[in-house]
Design a protein around this nucleic acid. Structure first.
Length: 494
RNA sequence: GCCCUCAUCGUCUAGGGGACCAGGACGUAAGCCUUUCAAGCUUAAAACCGGAGUUCGAAUCUCCGUGAGGGCACCA
């Protein structure tokens, strides 16, 4: 039997990191077993559907490299993959259930349901539909229909017995049937609820395994009874533990913002991670380490390795928080591995967005030195500000001197450095390094180049922290370095 | 209120009766290296939620607590 799994988001917004993780696990499982990964859109709540959300979700999945074999854009043998386009199918099966007496029409109004709920709350009774319309006589039903009353179709949940779900992650879980209310299957607008649409689609789309978030686990017994009423096979369930807020309080939700211990707002949308300069391969690696373990000590692994070793049994049932600092580390590791050209190209859009336009050729000179300094691509912005001539350098005499390089010595050193830079041939890493180190050693009191090179850094970049000095000088070019040295000499009155 | 689930260093995790004075990783701290910042290397501190039980032996199995999370819509 071919493995068929699906990711079935509702298009209510961007792709959430928790959703991305669910999609990833499904995708890994499909790829591991040579099966199909299907993208299905559950848009049966038209009030909540957000225009553009579908595109945003697909963009997020594509960015992460999670390609789908069937879906709204690519089609497939079970098309359409958007639930509102499948409405007649659900209606047909809802009415079939009514005819089979596994479901019934419910004429209760929203006001009546609200009153019932308030009553249950007040009486501290279990919440849920009380089954008032379940035992309506045919005459009563006919009368209500004749009166033109709106109705929904509810499932006639067995009142006796129990239902056990076999969850791959958690083992068997048993529910008392009497505890499960009669759920709405078909809404009065003719569209199905999640329960009906999900079961019908999973059946007709041949879904073999349902990997979804733990928040759905309590709907499983209802769904199992639905499969039973239809006479269909039940897929294998695997409920993934939830991703919690960094505080550990509550699940990471797309409706509320999350904050870490320092009160910093934390990233939750996939597009935010992208904008913050994270690499998709780092994201995938990171997500595959949350609530999941390879079983050995590997922390960093490729997508191919993740697929090869993927096992449902390795899913951890306990909920977890996202270890954001580990993501930073992982991302830094992946950045270090990038080829200079690829890194330069990856960094450039972030620089451009800041109005810091630098040729890829120039960036290329800096990348080998920069790659091990970046946790996120956006970190390059601060490092490379010095490449802009827009703002004048704010260097002071204090910056350009040192206790080992007092003002007099600094003047001499900078004068000589300027002459050296003006005339050195060729102008490259080796010559700059040799020449300036020698100058530093000559003029500092302790005969070490360090203090002078630190002052040079200030003079040339105007930054206390920058990429290595000689690389920075190379990227800047001889003419601009000379201009900045002249400025520095002016500051110290040389 | 009712139902369901979960519980190992600060965090992500390994472990599934003896190989555990509990291993790895991130983070933290210290040292080395060093032109800044990093990276790298070395070292350190840091955990089995509590209580009973089963057993020769429990982080591991059972029960009871406690704590945390999820669900209980004509939302998904």
């Amino acid at each position: 039997m071919t493995v068929r799994v699906r990711f079935a988001p509702s298009p209510t917004g961007y792709l959430h990191i928790g959703g991305a993780r669910t999609a990833l696990f499904n995708w890994l499982f499909a790829r591991k077993h040579g099966g199909q990964f299907i993208l299905r859109i559950e848009d049966t709540d038209q009030k909540r559907t957000v225009p553009g959300a579908l595109a945003a979700i697909m963009d997020g999945l594509r960015w992460l490299g999670l390609d789908w074999d069937e879906g709204p854009d690519v089609g497939g043998p079970c098309a359409p993959y958007i639930q509102t386009e499948r409405a007649p199918l659900y209606q047909e099966w809802a009415h079939w259930l009514v005819a089979q007496r596994h479901a019934y029409r419910c004429f209760c109004t929203p006001e009546e349901l609200e009153a019932m709920r308030t009553e249950q709350l007040a009486q501290k009774q279990p919440l849920g539909y009380n089954g008032r319309c379940r035992y309506l006589t045919p005459e009563q039903i006919a009368a209500r229909e004749a009166a033109g009353l709106e109705y929904v179709i509810r499932f006639k949940m067995p009142r006796e017995g129990e239902t056990t779900i076999q969850d791959v992650v958690r083992g068997p879980i048993t529910y008392q049937n009497g505890q499960i209310a009669d759920a709405v299957l078909l809404k009065s607008d003719g569209l199905p609820t999640y329960h009906l649409a999900n079961v019908v689609d999973d059946h007709f789309m041949g879904i073999t395994h349902i990997l979804r978030a733990d928040e759905w686990i309590n709907t499983a017994p209802l769904h199992i009874n639905l499969y039973g009423a239809f006479g269909w096979d039940v897929p294998v369930y695997a409920h993934l533990s939830l991703v919690l807020n960094p505080s550990g309080k509550g699940k990471l939700s797309k409706r509320t913002q999350a904050f870490d211990d320092e009160g910093q707002q934390v990233l939750v949308k996939v597009e935010e991670f992208q904008a913050a300069g994270y690499l998709p391969q780092a994201m995938v690696n990171f997500l595959a380490n949350v609530g999941y373990s390879t079983g050995d000590d590997r922390e960093k692994f490729s997508v191919q390795e993740a697929i090869a070793g993927f096992k449902l049994e390795n899913i951890n049932p306990a909920p977890s928080r996202l270890p954001y600092s580990k993501l930073d580390w992982l991302n830094g590791q992946y950045i270090q591995e990038m080829e200079p050209l690829a890194l330069a190209q990856a960094v450039k859009p972030f620089l451009d967005a800041q109005g810091l336009e630098v040729d890829v050729g120039v960036l290329l000179l800096l990348m080998p030195a920069l790659s091990k300094r970046l946790k996120r691509l956006t970190d390059a912005i601060e490092f490379l500000r010095f490449l802009s001539d827009d703002a004048p350098l704010q260097t002071t005499a204090v910056d350009l001197t040192h206790k080992q390089l007092p003002l007099e010595q600094a003047r001499l050193a900078f004068q000589q450095a300027r002459e050296f830079v003006a005339s050195v041939e060729p102008y490259n890493l080796e010559t700059l390094s040799a020449g300036l180190t020698a100058i530093g050693e000559r003029y500092t009191l302790n005969s070490k180049a360090g203090p002078f090179l630190g002052a040079m850094r200030y003079a040339v970049t105007g930054q206390q922290v920058s990429p290595p000095l000689f690389e920075s000088m190379l990227a800047l070019g001889r003419a601009r370095v000379l201009a900045r040295l002249a400025q520095a000499i002016e500051v110290i009155g040389g």
